[in-house]
């Protein structure tokens, strides 16, 4: 495998680190989209008591908390792998 050579291995690590940082930047966007999804379910018009299939608070609440928990876990995992070394250059170029 290519990882046997030291330089390739180091570059791979740097590459990984950069992608982890990208992931960390994308996470709030991703989370924002997930939090917006319940808006799509808001199907039943006012007074449509007859539509029992419309989204219910209980169900949306479960969804939100699951997503919330998932984001916290993901954020924790990313935070473990984020390294502050790549500040230079990378920072300017990406943000």
């Amino acid at each position: 495998m290519t990882a046997k050579k030291t330089p390739v291995f180091v570059q791979r690590r740097t590459y990984r680190r950069r992608r982890v940082a990208d992931g960390a930047r994308l996470l709030p966007v991703f989370g924002g989209i997930l939090f917006l999804i319940p808006l799509l379910w808001e199907g039943d018009p006012a007074g449509a008591e007859a539509v029992p299939d419309g989204a219910r608070t209980a169900w949306v609440m479960t969804y939100l908390f699951v997503v919330w928990f998932g984001l916290a876990v993901l954020s924790g995992v990313l935070a473990r792998f984020l390294v502050a070394e790549d500040d230079g250059g990378d920072e300017e170029g990406d943000s």
């Binding site: 940082a21 960390a24 709030p28 924002g32 939090f35 609440m61 984001l71 954020s75 935070a79």
Partner: peptide, 21 residues
């Protein structure tokens, strides 16, 4: 207003998980 209250905590959550930025 039902679940609307949760938005007050979703915003900070998003900011916090975007701490790197």
């Amino acid at each position: 207003s039902g679940l609307e209250f949760v938005t007050i905590y979703l915003g900070p959550t998003l900011v916090m998980i975007g701490w790197w930025w």
